[in-house]
Design a protein around this nucleic acid. Structure first.
Lengths: 158, 158
DNA sequence: ATGTATGCAAACCATTTGCAATGAC
DNA sequence: GTCATTGCAAATGGTTTGCATACAT
């Protein structure tokens, strides 16, 4: 991420911390900086490892704490329901409601579609103040799609 | 869920099991039936408890195993990235890409919008075979929105 | 009869918690 | 100086695994 953008985020984080009466510690800014370098998706393990690799030691507890603050202030997005266990739903229900996620190999790819994003953002929702959204499209990536097609033609004789 | 719909799902599950050479056990159908009764979101804990309450005992391991099969055959949706740990992303990145999820209290509400769903489904995606999608809109529910507004007016004097 | 599926309990691992030491204010 | 934040290690809790038993095919 270009320096200018990082500084904006840093300032945003800094003013959020002040506003909330939270301390501006070296660790917190180091973690935000590391996240900026990671660019895409990450989990605590990856983030923590990256920081160790850069010879910047913070405890995992601090990483969790800082991420929490970053999520609260809206700089970081948590890609999950806000409960700890995995959530499921009958597909029949779920479908009545974009990352591209391959159901086979788990690869995650981003999809940009301005028109769609626009229509989501401009949607009027009663009794809800929307802040941001995430669209996940599940399916098969090109590679797995081909593999599956291969299997299918074999299975014709079953 | 009305009986007719459950039977359809049961048949779908049954034929999937046959096709894959998996056994059609009593437990597997009991679990699917219980999921149909649950209707909305659930986790393994809730599902397992519900079955115990109905005096139908299955081990948690079996619940996990069966859910896995149900996800594979597309009857059940897993509301998460296909990795075990929570995934994060800089909001600045995530935004370039509908459940209504309250960022404050975690309440999850469903939002239906046919036009939007239609435009998502009809979207042409290169090198990806889409199967289903999930749109999460994060923000504040009415209750928390009011609480926050209350706080803000207090904080004006900060 | 064969080998998959189940039940149980132990193992695993991401995340959280408790507490003493540190350091931002 | 005060008290939030950190680091460390232990605890927690959802999920997975190993293995003996049960049962669908």
């Amino acid at each position: 991420m270009e320096t200018k953008k990082y500084i904006e985020l840093q300032e945003c984080f800094s003013s959020y911390l002040s506003k909330k009466g939270l301390r501006r510690t070296e660790e917190r800014f180091a973690i935000l900086e590391c996240i900026c370098d990671l660019k895409g998706h990450f989990d605590v393990y990856v983030l923590h490892r990256k920081m160790e690799e850069a010879n910047y030691h913070v405890s995992r507890a601090t990483v969790y704490n800082t991420i929490e603050v970053l999520v609260e202030c809206g700089l970081v997005v948590r890609h999950q329901f806000p409960v700890s266990s995995q959530q499921y739903e009958l597909r029949a229900y779920a479908e009545t409601h974009s990352h591209l996620i391959c159901m086979q190999c788990g690869a995650v790819r981003e999809l940009k579609n301005e028109a769609l994003q626009k229509s989501i953002v401009s949607m009027q929702i009663p009794r809800f103040t929307s802040v941001y959204h995430a669209l996940y499209i599940y399916g098969l990536c090109q590679k797995c799609s081909r593999l599956q097609a291969g299997k299918k033609s074999k299975n014709i004789n079953e």
